[in-house]
Nucleic acid binder design. Structure first.
Lengths: 205, 205
DNA sequence: ATTGCAGTATACCGACCGGTATAGTCACAA
DNA sequence: TTGTGACTATACCGGTCGGTATACTGCAAT
């Protein structure tokens, strides 16, 4: 694990960006944290923006690999994995270093849709949602895309909620809600008190 | 509606803070947008931080009043209001000026929990959740607090999701999920096909 | 030994940051 | 008419921002 200089800079930048915010982190601070100088920083990254994008792209890759690993380690069947997602999230948001989702935060710091930072952040959730949709499809959801979007809303909500106020129990409630939504999406609704094709018809797909 | 100078400054600041971000907005830009000078700005607000807090506090007040009004205008019964929440959110996140939730964004820009900006932002969602819990209680939820937290996760998720990528259909799916969760929380679960405590036992609680 | 390259050290750039000092303009009131 | 107070205009402060120029150190390959 001999980190070369470029990786050291990226790692230092990542920690500062995530823990203090991107705009709040200056390049001088990054160079100092990486035990190097701005000159070297600008040898490997042509600008701060470039470094920010590198941070997000690596985080995207790393996080998704880590996340899928964690889920796979907790459950075997697609349905169980769908639920395990919320356990993994629950453990993640409980660690002291947790400062919310780096991509949500980045999108908040760079609100314009066209901004590259914003775009890279948006891609992450596309991938994440696709992952959930894959699991949803495998476990026989009647509408994998809908279920995936609903579950992703719970995940994002739990992350944001925990970021605003720690120990709010967001992950547990998200999981409880997920259990209900998953069952509802898999089984043929036996409930006769309301017609299955009920008043609210989804707009698309 | 003759806006006095202090209000004009606060309004200009609010628009810039929300549309471009707090850290990205300088006091010079605010003064210029309000057609005044920094001197006047600092007559009414002792610091930029002070102005930021004023922005968030006014937004908190205004948004909640507006939101409850909107919901009340769409529905009469508590249960209908619970669903109307998602219609209001859906309309709000569809407007072009939508840039996410000001409080989530602020909390992302000021990640430290102790920070006053972060604290004021957190309070907003406390209030919001209480409002939902009130409605949940009125319509006979078996666990108003749980349902309120679950629904708030969907709301926050929808807001964040739409912020990352416009027109993702987040609000519609959030509403669909809400319908299921509300019914589940109100009625006595008649479903016997599966035990409620299934294979994946959550780590804690 | 010399070259070349990775990295350091440091000083500097113009621009902008939040914030202030000082003087001036204008309307209104005694 | 002379204040007085709200507001403007503008220049300035020290500090930091992202980014660069220049000179230096140390090491490895030829």
């Amino acid at each position: 694990m001999p980190l070369n200089l470029q990786e050291k800079i990226l790692q230092a930048a990542s920690e500062l960006f995530y823990s203090h915010g991107i705009r709040a982190t200056g390049v001088d601070a990054i160079a100092k944290a990486a035990n190097t100088t701005k000159m070297s920083l600008y040898k490997y990254f042509m600008s701060k923006d470039d470094l920010v994008l590198a941070f997000l792209r690596k985080r995207d890759e790393d996080f998704r690999v880590w996340f899928v690993d964690q889920v796979d380690g907790k459950a075997d069947t697609p349905k169980a994995k769908l639920l395990a997602i919320f356990d993994v999230i629950g453990e993640w948001i409980a660690i002291p270093e947790f400062r919310g989702c780096a991509f949500i935060n980045a999108a908040a710091e760079f609100p314009l849709e066209g901004n590259p930072v914003h775009r890279v952040s948006a891609e992450f959730y596309d991938h994440f949602r696709s992952y959930i949709a894959g699991l949803a499809g495998q476990c026989g959801s009647k509408s994998p895309e809908s279920l995936a979007l609903q579950l992703s809303l719970l995940v994002e909500g739990a992350i944001v909620s925990e970021q605003m106020k720690r120990h709010s129990g967001a992950a547990e409630q998200a999981k409880q809600a997920a259990i209900i939504l998953i069952e509802h999406s898999i089984i043929d609704i036996p409930d006769t008190s309301l017609p299955t094709s009920n008043a609210q018809e989804s707009s698309n797909e």
